[in-house]
């Protein structure tokens, strides 16, 4: 039997992590408790984030959006500030798991699982998000792309807690796009996903392109070559096809029970075709 503890402050939580044997941080539990059931994890004690003051907050400053690790996914995707400034993330969370999973699961949990198929990760990469880790020595920050080190692996040190993710608000007029390709519509794990941010200029050429793919490598894949290729070009079918070829070279997919590497490579490029649009300054609606 493992005890379940409910610290009410971050300090208390850090203290518990330091003092207990084999602690597991329990956020939404939607991944952790499945792993426990499968025998992949056997925590000596659960330290819940449920009742830590401020651990579920979503904050907006003039320039930034801050999402605390314990914020439930459903609340994030419905939050006006996220809808306005982080639509790509809201779009991704809207297709994560199921309504129940989104009520339970947290952003921190999704990041900490560090799955290449984690639906929140491509948007966070595309938004150039940073994470803030709390430890006995205080806070440290790093880009989410540095924090994620491999499948299931993060830079979190023992005794630390992932406290928040934050990102700078994209410039007005930025298009947000997320698409997940899964084996079914809901309750699905992504076979390939794409998060895209780009800003079309009045003449239709794009600046500020930011792309991130899920499930096509050990971690989220970005492709500076593809982004550079698209810069200052209109997103015509021909241009996007060219970008798709570059994307297919950039990804490093594997074959598994859900999809073949070939499928993933193909689709990673194909998904760019959806960006073909006359939309100027408008967010694309999901397909």
């Amino acid at each position: 039997m493992a005890d379940v503890l409910f610290p009410v402050s971050l300090d208390q939580a850090l203290d518990l992590l330091a003092k207990t044997e084999a602690p597991a941080v329990l956020a939404g539990g939607t991944d952790l408790l499945v792993q426990v059931r499968q025998g992949k994890k056997t925590p000596g004690i659960f330290v819940s984030l449920d009742r830590i003051e401020g651990a579920q907050e979503i904050l907006e400053t003039e320039t930034e959006i801050i999402i605390r690790a314990g914020a439930p996914l459903a609340r994030i995707m419905a939050h006006p500030a996220i809808r306005d400034h982080g639509s790509v993330l809201a779009q991704a969370l809207a297709v994560l798991g199921s309504p129940q999973i989104r009520n339970m699961g947290t952003l921190g949990g999704n990041i900490m699982t560090a799955s290449p198929a984690g639906d929140s990760l491509p948007p966070l990469y595309a938004l150039d998000a940073r994470v803030q880790l709390a430890g006995p020595e205080g806070f440290r920050r790093m880009p989410v792309r540095d924090f994620i080190q491999g499948p299931g692996k993060t830079a979190l040190a023992p005794g630390e807690i992932l406290w928040q993710a934050n990102f700078t608000k994209p410039a007005p007029g930025t298009c947000h796009w997320f698409e997940k390709v899964g084996q079914r519509t809901a309750l699905s794990i992504s076979m390939v996903s794409l998060a895209a941010l780009f800003r079309p200029d009045p003449d239709g050429r794009v600046s500020k392109v930011s792309l991130a793919w899920g499930s096509v490598g050990p971690t989220i894949v970005e492709s500076p070559e593809t982004e550079t290729f698209l810069l200052n070009k209109p997103l015509t079918r021909e241009v996007l096809a060219g970008a798709g070829d570059l994307a297919r070279q950039a990804v490093r997919p594997i074959s598994d029970i859900r999809a073949t590497a070939d499928f993933r490579r193909q689709v990673a490029g194909n998904l760019l075709m959806r960006l073909e649009t006359p939309a100027k300054g408008k967010r694309l609606t999901r397909y």
Binding site: L26, T30, V34, R37, D50, G97, Q100, N103
Partner: peptide, 28 residues
């Protein structure tokens, strides 16, 4: 037992959750 089927859906604090992926202590 893994959160995939929804047969254990209950309401906690007004929101739907899955009873198979919750620990008893969480509803204190």
């Amino acid at each position: 037992g893994t959160g995939e089927c929804g047969a254990c859906t209950i309401r906690v604090q007004g929101e739907t959750k899955l009873a198979c992926l919750m620990l008893a202590a969480q509803v204190q």
